[in-house]
Design a binder for these strands. Sequence first.
RNA 1: GGCGACGUGGCCAAGUGGUAAGGCGAGGGUCUGCAAAACCCUUAUUCGCCGGUUCGAAUCCGGCCGUCGCCUCCA
Length: 472
Amino acid sequence: MKPVKFFNSLGRRLQEFEPLEPAHVGLYTCGPTVYDRIHIGNLRTFIFEDILRRTLRFFGYRVTQAMNLTDVEDKIIAAALEAEVDIDAFTAPHVESFFEDLAALRVERVEHYPRATEHVAEMIAMIERLLAAGYAYRADDSVFFRIAADHDYGKLSGIDLDQVRRGQRVQSDEYGKQDARDFVLWKGAKEGEPEWPSPWGPGRPGWHIECSAMSQKYLGKTFDIHCGGVDNLFPHHENEIAQSESANCCPLARYWLHSEHLTVDGEKMSKSLGNCYTLGDLLDRGLPARSIRYLLASVHYRQQLDFTFDKLAEAGRALKRIDDMRFRLAHEAEKDGDSASLDLAADDFENAFAAALADDLNTAAALGAVFTFVHAVNGFIDHGLPHGARARVQAALDRADQVLAVLDAGEWAGSPEAGGGLSDAEIDALVEARSDARASRNFAAADRIRDQLSEAGVVVEDTPDGSRWKRA
RNA sequence: GGCGACGUGGCCAAGUGGUAAGGCGAGGGUCUGCAAAACCCUUAUUCGCCGGUUCGAAUCCGGCCGUCGCCUCCA
């Protein structure tokens, strides 16, 4: 098994990855709060996590992953109240659209999608342990985590709470606490809000406790990798560590990986700027899901990525270069080419690709290797394709695509509008008719057919071996 | 105020001590009845600026300029 290196936010350094159990990885990834349709920033993180998961498998690990669904939280409660439905009815369509969006981008289903509302008992149990150990205290009907009792609080984010500005936001907090820095574990019930019974009276869990309780249930007290967007580093992940490690007296996760944010046209996404695109917004504009996945995966996960429509179009053109090579490869006859040197090119590609992924998931370099290989294969197509070349190239690309999931256009089919409604057989007939016209030097007729096909979105390519076509 | 990231060709983006991957674009070429499509070639003596360390720096150190993010809503 090849050593894989990750940049661990905990300690802020590149580390060789070693799982707790041989060949098995426990992975926890913070999931969505299901109060709205997720936006492309969320999708960037989920695609990063998907590539992490696929990369681990690529290197021979079995992966057990849990992604939570936050289905009870302030925004949800407020929105459900306004819509006059209970929170389950309110969140259901958002859960559904979340899964649809992931599927549209070929993000794999993970093993567990625990919901906060179904794990309140586990959260209560953890809060009880924290109370018993003196890490938590009750105030009014709520329970708070006592940061002063946690001596290594801040070790993930490097934050020094004494240096943090004490803003008005803390003063406006609705719940009483002893120290402004403390955070809530359990919120006492309020009129009209959903509530669960607890030893401290009815109420609902705080946001941070859900991940601590659910990761423990599905992955154990200590697991391998915890991921999320950088914004979660503080306070969410810091608080998860505080809760879990105080309750369990062992490390929560050994590696913490955080993906950088997506900006749009150089600015942070926000509703007021109107640049909070959802996948649906982009698909409605006719933009291909495949280009979206490519763009979001093409920049290293720890780099900010600025989303623009121009880049999305560029992504489509880059993919076309891959598609064109595969199209040419499929139509080119194998003959006595230099198969040893083709094998060498394929080996070089596979090695460079794997090395890039093993280096902290360097997808940009991995794609660079893909294009270098595309260039090499084009050379073989031009100068003589050896026997067995198609299978060898196909195998190399397929293996890489187990991680990237963008290299095979066929896997993304589903835009039948291309081709203008003409069936393959109809197109074949037209192309043949045009060839006949050309053969009899009736170029006017040939060009009419070419124009007709062009309007239908079909490109005819004339090669020394005859004409062939593809959908644009 | 505290913490952190980034600045590489026209645009995007790898590379973190050994002499600049890759994509898009642009220019040229091949092919063609003409085209188109595609492919091929070319396109950074240089990595924000100034100093320093070194045989050698885009890569390390110091300073400066600029951009961005987080600091308890946030992927």
